[in-house]
């Protein structure tokens, strides 16, 4: 609590109207994200992990102010930017870059790579023509592309190269923060590694902070400093990466880890399912703890009462290990 975090979410909630088109009166609301809070320190990476429908993308979009929150607030360097002043909003946008999942959809097909990368500078009126051109060249080089690649159009690049262009664009205004929503999932593994190394180098060099959305636990374990696990729109567990992976407390976190396929275990023989069933729909959330229908440890209490996030760590406030479970697991998953 000593320092002001770079980015802070306080009680972010998102509700979408359910059914009903333009003409129909919408009947009810579905909660995609409920009361989520997190802190991202400068120069570090916070990973939001979870399965499809857990609300991680909606959460990232709210944090980036691309989707208005139904409740809660986003603070940048301690200043509220949700519903805040125009100047706070503009300053926030200038200091934040975005990378999306699909490099085929996130680049304008009619813009050259150089123009795409220069676009944020044009919008924010940064630099003169010569400075912008110089900056574009240096960014291309930074993300591992050649100086002449700037003249090419997106369709001539591979997926991995497109994602590098998207990253270069995100870095154009020298942001302190990059919000990356599944930036690797469209890439082959060998290309994923190149991208991860690049992101890590940029973090070391420029002191970038990443809000990193991913479903890949093994990548997160190596790349992130802190991790928040989401289930049906809520954080169910959060801790620094080492603590979370060594002593996961929520049965869902443990199930996720157990379900990750590994080499060296040999052929499976069936029957060792980590968690039965599938993630529930936010349209009809289970009562009590949302995970209880799939949880091996669920008891009556879990069906009746939703567990609150509580600090279960033994460390101080800075290393809080929080978990929302009536019967958290203890002990290490490996020596």
């Amino acid at each position: 609590m000593s320092t002001t975090p770079l980015l802070e979410a306080r009680g972010l909630t998102k509700e979408f109207p359910l059914g009903g088109g333009l003409l129909a009166k919408s009947k009810s609301l579905v909660r995609a994200v409920s009361d989520v809070s997190f802190r991202l320190e400068a120069g570090t990476t916070l990973a939001l992990v979870g399965e499809s429908g857990c609300g991680k993308t909606t959460l990232a979009r709210m944090a980036a102010l691309l989707t208005p929150a139904s409740g809660g607030s986003v603070l940048y360097r301690g200043e509220e930017v949700t519903g805040g002043s125009r100047s706070a909003l503009k300053s926030f946008r200038r200091h934040m870059g975005l990378v999306f999942q699909d490099p085929y959809a996130s680049l304008n097909p009619r813009m050259t790579a150089a123009r795409t990368i220069a676009e944020p500078m044009l919008i924010h009126g940064a630099g003169n023509r010569l400075e912008r051109r110089y900056r574009v060249q240096s960014l291309l080089e930074h993300v591992g592309l050649g100086p002449r690649d700037g003249e090419r159009y997106p369709h001539t690049f591979s997926g991995g190269q497109r994602q590098r262009i998207a990253l270069a664009r995100a870095l154009a205004l020298e942001p302190e923060l990059v919000i990356a929503d599944e930036p690797l999932s469209a890439l082959d593994v060998s290309i994923q590694s190149q991208m991860l190394n690049l992101m890590r180098d940029l973090q070391d060099e420029m002191g970038l902070a990443f809000l990193f959305i991913s479903h890949d636990l093994a990548v997160v374990e190596s790349f992130a400093h802190h991790v928040a696990v989401l289930y049906l729109g809520r954080i169910v567990e959060s801790a620094d990466t080492t603590t979370l992976f060594r002593t996961p407390a929520h049965p869902y976190t443990r199930a996720l880890m157990k379900a990750v396929p590994r080499i060296g275990e040999g052929r499976r023989h069936g029957g060792a399912t980590a968690a039965p069933g599938e993630p529930p729909s936010p349209v009809a959330p289970p009562p009590g703890c949302a995970f209880h229908p799939r949880c091996p440890k669920a008891q009556a209490l879990c069906r009746d009462q939703r567990p609150q996030l509580e600090n279960i760590g033994d460390g101080g406030n800075d290393d809080a290990h929080i978990c929302a479970c009536h019967f958290p697991e203890t002990g290490s998953v490996r020596p």
């Binding site: 479903h215 996720l256 379900a259 396929p261």
Partner: peptide, 11 residues
Amino acid sequence: DVTVQSQILDL
């Protein structure tokens, strides 16, 4: 999803 993947592989 990874938990569902595990079930389908078993199946």
